Simulated assay, not measured.
Amino acid sequence: MTSPGIALQGAVHLNETILLPNLRLALAAGRWTVLLGPSGVGKTTLARLVAGLPTGAQLEGTMRADDGAPLDGRVAVMAQDDQLLPWSSALANVCIGSRLRGTRPDWTRARALLDAVGLLPLAERKPGRLSTGQRQRVALARTLYEDRPVVVLDEPFSALDPVTRYAMQDLAANLLTGRTVILITHDPQEAMRLAYAAFLIGGPDGASAVETPSSPAPRPADSPEIFAAQAVLLRRLTGATAPDTGIAA
Rank of each mutant, 00 (worst) to 15 (best):
K43Y: 07
R74D: 09
P21R: 12
A139D: 01
R137L: 04
R101M: 08
W107H: 13
R31D: 10
S89N: 05
R111W: 05
L23W: 10
G133Q: 03
A57E: 02
E60P: 05
A92C: 03
T45Y: 01
Q58V: 11
Y145G: 07
R129F: 14
V77T: 13
A110R: 00
R64Q: 15
V138I: 07
G56C: 05
E60A: 15
T132R: 14
C95P: 03
A110I: 02
R101H: 12
L85S: 05
L35G: 08
L85R: 01
Q58M: 12
G42V: 03
R104M: 12
C95V: 10
R31G: 09
S39R: 09
A110T: 01
A51F: 06
A47P: 02
A69H: 15
R104K: 15
L113N: 04
G40T: 06
V138Q: 01
Q80N: 08
D115M: 05
Q58T: 11
S89P: 04
L53T: 03
L27Y: 08
R111Q: 14
T132F: 14
D67V: 06
R129Q: 13
D81V: 09
N93Y: 01
P127H: 06
L27N: 09
L144G: 06
Q134H: 02
G118K: 02
D72G: 12
T103K: 13
R137N: 05
